[in-house]
């Protein structure tokens, strides 16, 4: 049986105390909430933190508020299932929940959290393996090795951003609340990420993501298309989150964010711009989707072939745009 390595387990009483614990232990500590991402990685010895700082129990991270306008604040420790069951959230934020609904499996959504899915580790076929397997290839840049096994000559790690909710949150213009030693700050969700498969989060090592804030929809309509082998369980091998705002037949706002085709959620403004200012005709959608696919740079480190994934970006962007446009 695969088992966890030993660690010291800490249970802070508040997010601020958690940031203090992170500060105390430098890089040797990891936050854990639902554990669905971290614990398998520890069992495979991809990560062996000496200290786990548990935050899943903190009431401060579990609030779920939806304002009359429809804006929502979801504590980072809210489980994905709690979000899915929340009546007001279902009413006001169907776009975000569309992405939540396709995360993994029911049992994992019962444990996995809003914050955890935003911060889910980047994935790679050369990285998400046991220690024995990785030792057979001499490890990789993301853990214990020098070389990126998917792009050996590259000076960086190309592990894949695999969150379903991050592209959607960015498309919706969401922000993240962070607690740090110097207090709170609120940043766009997009700025949580760095374009590096290894150091994929742009948070300070002592910061704790405390909440996700989704703005009121104010007429924005959205859709999420996820490409994967099976109808459940699988991480995306490419995904497209689209948010659109229409003024009559004319698009006056559009954000397109791709998932699983880069080391961070890849917003493609040049594709979105091809839709803004015009009507949503086949030609415009085709051009925007083509541009999105051009910018996607999947590599051979997930399920299914990477040329196919790149090509499929066009299909899923088209489908997401049409789906979003068709929604009230």
């Amino acid at each position: 049986m695969l088992r966890l390595p030993v660690f010291s387990y800490l249970r802070p009483g508040s997010p601020v105390e958690a940031t203090q614990m992170l500060a105390d232990h430098g890089g040797r500590a990891k936050l854990v909430a639902g554990g669905t991402d971290l614990l398998p990685k520890m069992k495979r010895r991809q990560l062996a933190p000496e200290v786990l700082v548990a935050i899943g129990h903190l009431d401060a991270l579990r609030q779920l508020e939806v304002s009359p306008s429809g804006a929502a604040t979801l504590g980072a420790g809210t489980t994905l299932s709690q979000a899915l069951r929340h009546p007001a959230l279902r009413e006001q934020q169907p776009g975000y929940l569309e992405a939540v609904r396709v995360v993994s499996t029911p049992a994992l959504r019962n444990a996995g959290t809003v914050g955890g899915n935003l911060c889910v580790d980047t994935r790679c076929n050369y990285y998400d393996m046991t220690e024995e397997w990785r030792s057979a290839i001499g490890f990789c840049r993301k853990a214990g090795g020098e070389v990126c096994r998917v792009a050996a000559s590259s000076p960086r790690c190309w592990a894949v951003s695999s969150s379903d909710t991050a592209p959607m949150a960015i498309a919706l213009g969401a922000t993240a609340l962070l607690a740090g030693p110097d207090g709170m700050r609120e940043v766009p969700v997009a700025s949580l990420y760095a374009d590096d498969g290894a150091a994929y989060l742009a948070l300070a090592a002592t910061e704790v993501l405390t909440a996700l804030r989704l703005p009121a929809s104010e007429g924005w309509r959205s859709a999420y298309q996820k490409l994967r082998r099976r109808a459940s369980m699988d991480f995306p091998v490419a995904s497209a989150a689209v948010a659109l705002h229409l003024d009559g037949p004319v698009v006056d706002g559009c954000r397109i964010v791709l998932g699983a085709v880069a080391s961070h959620p890849l917003e493609v403004p040049s594709a979105a711009d091809l839709l803004v200012g015009g009507e949503l005709d086949d030609d415009a959608i085709d051009r925007a989707a083509t541009e999105a696919a051009r910018l996607a740079k999947p590599l051979d480190n997930t399920d299914l072939s990477f040329p196919w994934r790149k090509r499929m970006v066009k299909v899923i962007v088209e489908r997401a745009v049409r789906q979003a446009a068709g929604r009230a």
Binding site: N125, M129, W133, A136, R230, A231, S232, M233, D303
Partner: peptide, 25 residues
Amino acid sequence: MEEQSYRKGLHHHPSVLEYKTPLAL
């Protein structure tokens, strides 16, 4: 779906998640 495939003699995906088999849906 199912493939027991290899890269340089090393199993491509020795896990229940990445060795794809049909699920209930």
